[in-house]
């Protein structure tokens, strides 16, 4: 090959990726720098920014300490993630295991389990808003048999996982319930991964007299661990980014009493309702740092429980 064609091929590499490079520049690098700089200013987009040093970061630290504003949103988001992520991992794996059973109509069941995940989030928010209505909702119609005072769901500030109000479902529990309904994507990933497990592993275990549970515990689960890890990280990111459903069920405010105010909504409202771009940019950066920290922490612990092809890493 001549030197000219070599060079042309090298150059064409850059040409092919140029749309993305342009995107990188204007959709990532510029916003990245701008939001970092703005986080040190008081800025409302209407008048020019004013340098205020680390005021916003101090305010965030204060709010984390007092549990208000960003602190409140952080607590809400953590609660939501802690409730919804493990439950949806458990749910997705259970469903995948069930779908892997060799029974008639497997394909139909797979479709039925997956279909809720195709419901657009706006539609499913409207649907669950109605199903979880404290008075007219079908869910409470059913729970009425067990509860003297049925839970308030999206209208309530209660938290089901707490000492004060155990099993009194509030707004965040309603949101968690919604996310459980849409676990289809991960269910399919687990299903594919279970299909990839060598049958010989199970045969060997059976020869050793392993039961159903032991096979699951010692073969299936370790083989799925890389995906569980992936699911865990993605689940956390998704909880932090949950916006549409939160906006709709809380009428764009995080009500009642900010009990469903998640970080992404709080950031959005701080910026575009309260006109505090500086503070909102600072939140974005703190959030970025916290997410990075959480991911790094998970990677550290993952060495102890994530198995890649049966080998501990």
């Amino acid at each position: 090959m001549s030197a000219v064609t070599q060079r042309r091929r090298r150059l064409s590499g850059w040409i092919f990726v140029s749309p993305w490079l342009l995107g990188l520049l204007i959709l990532f690098i510029y916003p990245f720098i701008a939001s970092f700089l703005w986080s040190f200013t008081e800025y409302d987009l209407l008048t020019s920014p004013r340098y205020v040093g680390t005021d916003h970061y101090q305010r965030i630290a204060q709010e984390i300490a007092s549990g208000e504003g960003f602190g409140k949103a952080l607590v809400n988001t953590v609660y939501f993630a802690v409730v919804s992520v493990p439950l949806s991992i458990f749910m997705a794996i259970s469903l995948a295991v069930m779908l892997n059973w060799k029974v008639r109509g497997q394909a139909i069941f797979r479709t039925l389990f997956y279909l809720p995940s195709m419901v657009p989030i706006v539609a499913s928010s409207i649907l669950w808003l109605w199903l979880l209505d404290p008075r007219d909702g079908m869910v409470n119609g059913f729970l009425g048999f067990f509860y003297e005072v049925p839970p308030l769901w999206f209208q309530g500030i209660q938290e089901a996982i707490s000492l004060d109000t155990p099993l009194q479902f509030g707004s965040k529990d309603g949101l968690a319930m919604m996310s459980l309904w849409g676990v289809g994507n991960f269910m399919l990933i687990y299903l594919a991964a279970i299909g990839d497990i060598e049958p010989s592993l199970y045969h060997a275990a059976e020869l050793d007299g392993a039961g159903v549970w032991q096979k699951f515990r010692h073969i299936t689960l370790p083989m799925l661990s890389p995906i569980i890890f992936f699911n865990l990280i993605l689940g956390i990111i998704q909880s932090v980014q949950a916006f549409t459903q939160v906006y709709i069920v809380s009428e764009g405010t995080g009500q009642p009493a900010e009990s469903s105010l998640m970080i992404s909504l709080q950031l959005f409202l701080s910026a575009f309702r309260d006109l505090e771009m500086g503070y909102a940019s600072a939140i974005a950066w703190v959030l970025f740092a916290l997410l990075g920290l959480a991911t790094w922490g998970l990677f550290r612990t993952s060495k102890n429980w994530v198995h890649y092809r049966g080998v501990r890493m």
């Binding site: 990245f32 959030l287 997410l291």
Partner: peptide
């Protein structure tokens, strides 16, 4: 295609996946 900087650029591409949209929303 083989071109200089491809690996580095690919790493940047992966990194942008991990960035929450909040960070870029306002300037965008």
């Amino acid at each position: 295609l083989r071109w200089r900087g491809r690996k580095a650029m690919f790493a940047v591409l992966i990194a942008t996946m991990l960035l929450p949209w909040h960070v870029t929303m306002i300037p965008r």
